[in-house]
């Protein structure tokens, strides 16, 4: 009689575990020594739809739906099972109370803050007192194929004199000061960062730094310095050249 109900519970548990453990396990396979958990917030939604999926599966068929409902009907409807009914009602109510308590009790868990990783860039930006049209801006060194090696290496020197404390020797965002900052420095090796962006975007981000971010990018948190105060236009373009060259990514282009 309980078969379907048990089946439902087991199915939900199995899928839950696949996500709960499978994803970090996969992550640990990709990056040894890490255990990248699924964020609770996302897990909740996952579980919601897993439960929905399992229930849909078990109820699309009339008999199966009846069978699933049977124990529920038994417990709540059968006049002879008053005792059991009271227990079930109490357990469910207490569980609900517990969940509510967990949510209202004072918590020291820091509020979740969110920032857009790639906020929309402005169409033009002023740096060194000059306006730059970001829509059309391209890296002047990109076309200079003859001096590419030299320019990229010069960009590398700029990087290692200015950037690598945070963005790391390996350009993986794990420089020796990285864990002191939040948001953590960008990982350029990752396919989700500079590989997704145009060079003009990088030019804007480097030139105006954290304080130049729009509000959705939480400019008050970013420790990225305003590099136009330290570097010349040429140096910034060379660093950009180096970032793509070293990581092997190519900048995004449109058209």
């Amino acid at each position: 009689m309980m078969k379907k109900l048990i089946q439902a519970v087991i199915l939900i548990l199995v899928f839950y575990l696949i996500l709960k453990l499978g994803i970090p396990a996969l992550g640990s396979f990709l990056h040894h020594g890490t255990w990248p958990v699924v964020p609770t917030n996302l897990m909740r939604i996952y579980v919601f739809f897993i439960v929905a999926g399992v229930l849909l599966y078990l109820t699309f068929n009339e008999e199966s739906a009846k069978e699933l409902g049977k124990p529920i009907k038994e417990v709540y409807g059968n006049p002879e099972k008053g005792g059991l009914r009271m227990i079930v009602i109490a357990v469910i109510a207490l569980f609900g109370g517990y969940i509510t308590y967990q949510n209202v009790k004072p918590s020291f868990e820091a509020p979740v803050e969110l920032r857009s990783i790639h906020p929309a860039p402005p169409s033009s930006v002023e740096m060194w007192g000059k306006p730059y049209n970001l829509l059309k801006l391209t890296n002047p060194f990109r076309e200079d194929k003859a001096n590419f090696e030299k320019n990229a290496r010069e960009g590398g020197i700029v990087f290692f004199k200015n950037c690598f404390y945070c963005h790391g020797d390996k350009l993986d965002g794990k420089g020796h000061y990285n864990s002191g900052f939040s948001p953590m420095p960008a990982n350029f090796v990752d396919v989700g960062t500079i590989a997704q962006l145009q060079e003009s975007f990088l030019f804007w981000r480097i030139g105006t730094g954290g304080p130049g971010l729009p509000k959705e990018g939480a400019p008050w948190r970013s420790a990225m310095p305003i590099w136009q105060h330290f570097l010349s236009e040429e140096e910034i373009w060379k660093v950009i050249l180096f970032l793509y060259d070293y990581t092997g990514h190519s900048p995004r282009t449109f058209g």
Binding site: K73, Y76, G77, P79, I89, I92, G97, T100, V104
Partner: peptide
């Protein structure tokens, strides 16, 4: 809050049980 949740859940289940009994 938890108390309210418990009361609502108990009441809701009792109401549900009433309907179920009729069905049963």
């Amino acid at each position: 809050y938890p108390a309210a949740a418990i009361i609502i859940l108990v009441a809701g289940q009792l109401w549900f049980a009433r309907g179920m009994r009729k069905d049963y």
